[in-house]
């Protein structure tokens, strides 16, 4: 469904993505891990065109995302994103956060967008907050709303950019629980995270990145127990001890 071939990206002289190639199937749950600054976030931001690439090819359902005339709006209707800092629209209520893009971008009727919006708020356990504003919610609640907002676009893919990294420790689990619940439906999830427990439970495939390159790809079983790669081993030993 998503294909990257020979993707390179530079920020000035800095080579952030080095010859990335990968294939992600429909419905697959992919977790990308690796040290900070290894290019994980940049990689997923390229998938929905938030970052442009220097060369290479990215296709989603055979549509070339990297072309200048790419139907970027259609792509973003299919590929939703959840950010590290939630980025809920501060001037809109929770329900309005869920319905703004479906109404204005997808042209869905307001009543319909609100109906499905309430269903997704129910799913993330925040239906009672529909009329509140983002500033009144805790970080964990805001991130759950952000996931509901992504879902209300009825996407085929959701990109998660370190969804729990900005959260207080006691709020991490409530967000992970929502994501684990989500992994049971047929939606493609690409998750950049440092939560190894989540990776183990949910991932069909773990991608380990270091210094802009994909170092290893495998099942969580293989990755966490029998990787031969020295850099991956070093990384895992640090993560597990901390």
């Amino acid at each position: 469904m998503i294909q990257m071939e020979g993707v390179n990206k530079y920020f000035g002289d800095h080579h952030v993505l080095k010859n990335i190639s990968l294939t992600i199937e429909e419905g697959e749950k992919v977790v990308i891990i690796g040290p900070s600054g290894s290019g994980k976030s940049t990689l997923i931001r390229c998938i929905n065109g938030l970052e442009t690439i220097t060369d290479g090819l990215i296709t989603i359902q055979d549509i070339d995302v990297t072309k200048k005339e790419a139907p970027i709006r259609n792509i973003r209707e299919k590929v939703a994103m959840v950010f590290q800092n939630f980025n809920l629209y501060a001037h809109k209520t929770i329900l309005e956060n869920l319905t703004l893009a479906p109404i204005k971008v997808k042209g869905i009727k307001k009543a319909e967008a609100e109906k499905t919006g309430m269903e997704y708020l129910e799913r993330v356990g925040l239906a009672d907050k529909a009329a509140a504003y983002p500033a009144q919610l805790s970080g964990g609640q805001q991130q759950r709303v952000a996931i509901a907002r992504a879902l209300n676009m009825h996407p085929e893919v959701i990109l998660f950019d370190e969804p729990t990294s900005a959260l207080d420790p006691e709020m991490i689990q409530e967000v992970l629980d929502v994501m684990i619940d989500l992994s049971k439906i047929n939606i493609t999830m690409i998750v950049v995270t440092h939560e190894m427990g989540f990776a183990r439970t949910v991932a069909d495939k773990v991608i380990f990145m270091d210094d802009g390159a994909i170092v290893e790809t495998g099942t969580p079983e293989h990755f966490f127990t029998s990787t031969e790669n020295q850099r991956a081993k070093d990384f895992l030993s640090k993560i597990i001890h901390h």
Binding site: N48, L50, I72, R73, N74, R76, E77, A80, M81, F83, N85, F86, N87, L88, Y89, A90, L100, A101, K104, V105, K106, R149, M153
Partner: peptide
């Protein structure tokens, strides 16, 4: 900046 990034990721054009 996160506000306009979120909007862009949902398919809004620059002017929208």
């Amino acid at each position: 900046r996160g506000q306009s990034e979120a909007a862009a990721s949902q398919g809004f054009s620059y002017w929208e």
